[in-house]
């Protein structure tokens, strides 16, 4: 633990390609998750994000076993999860239990794949808790491409999706295709989650996909501002977490979640006095 605040070591590591790749990946992930997070919160989908992340892990484990790209495997797993959740759990009441059932099975399957894989222990852990050095420039291209795709689709569907999220009945009455938007958003979440699996790992994707949004809605009710704040919070957590993890060589996810959670606590505190003021 002596290296925890060793900034010379941090500076030295920042000069390396693999670290810069990781920072770039984190920055991309921060934008995507910040944009999605407020709607994840509004649509009460944190558990869905969790379930999707577990299946991204399953996909990544399968890819590892087959010798395919881990990134592509995670992507495939997350999209399968999103479609499954979208198709099985269209009704709100169903969703919770469907996710629970699918998630448990997927995680079990992933563990099985890892057990089959020869170099199991080390790689398995990195998929669950993230490993910055795992990202090479091919992964980075896939990451950036997927991120742009998510953002473009999100810009297209943002207004009707917001409408459907806050006011489903009226949105349906006005002709918003709610039944298309729900699975579509689930797929976007899947893609974003798969991106997160490579940096912060499957188990801790929530720190970026949920917490920044949950923090932002505590301090503002302006939808555009919640997105901006969530992006900033996610960036600070993702990039800051990686930088802090360099010197001690500790898992990235610990730092990302710690920063993310601190922001959340601060926003809750700030939000409490805001609500008191607004209620008067």
């Amino acid at each position: 633990m002596t290296g925890l605040f060793d900034f010379t070591k941090t500076g030295y590591l920042l000069g390396h390609d693999f670290v810069q790749h990781a920072l770039l990946a984190a920055a991309v992930l921060g934008v995507v998750s910040g944009v999605l997070a407020p709607l994840v919160v509004a649509r009460r989908m944190s558990f869905a994000v969790h379930g999707t992340a577990e299946l991204a892990f399953t996909g990544a484990a399968a890819a590892l076993l087959l010798g395919a790209s881990v990134g592509a495997g995670a992507l495939a797993g997350a999209i399968v999860a999103a479609l499954l959740l979208g198709l099985l759990g269209l009704r709100d009441g169903d969703r919770d239990s469907v996710i629970g059932a699918v998630l448990a099975f997927g995680l079990g399957l992933g563990v099985f794949f890892l057990w089959l894989y020869p170099g199991r222990a080390r790689n398995g852990l990195s998929l669950l808790v993230g490993q910055v050095v795992a990202i090479d420039s091919t992964d980075l291209t896939l990451l950036a491409g997927s991120a742009v795709a998510v953002l473009v689709v999100m810009a297209m569907i943002y207004r009707p999706l917001l409408f459907a999220s806050v006011d489903q009945d009226v949105a349906v009455a006005r002709g918003v295709p709610v039944r298309v938007l729900s699975p579509l958003f689930a797929v976007l979440l899947g893609v974003a989650t798969a991106l997160g699996v490579q940096t912060v790992g499957a188990l801790l994707v929530m720190a970026l996909m949920v917490t920044p949004g949950a923090a932002a809605v505590r301090v503002t009710s302006n939808p555009a501002l919640t997105i901006l704040l969530a992006v900033i919070f996610a960036e600070v957590a993702a990039v800051g977490g990686i930088v802090l993890s360099l010197a001690p060589g500790a898992p990235v996810s610990t730092f990302v979640t710690a920063i993310s959670f601190s922001i959340y606590l601060a926003c809750r505190l700030a939000g409490r006095s805001r609500l008191r003021r607004l209620r008067v």
Binding site: R159, L162, G175, T226
Partner: peptide, 17 residues
């Protein structure tokens, strides 16, 4: 925790679709 103000709700009636 659903971040919308009154004016956002009304705005969605205008162009939310």
């Amino acid at each position: 925790t659903v971040a919308v103000r009154g004016r956002d709700l009304v705005g969605l009636g205008w162009d939310g679709h």
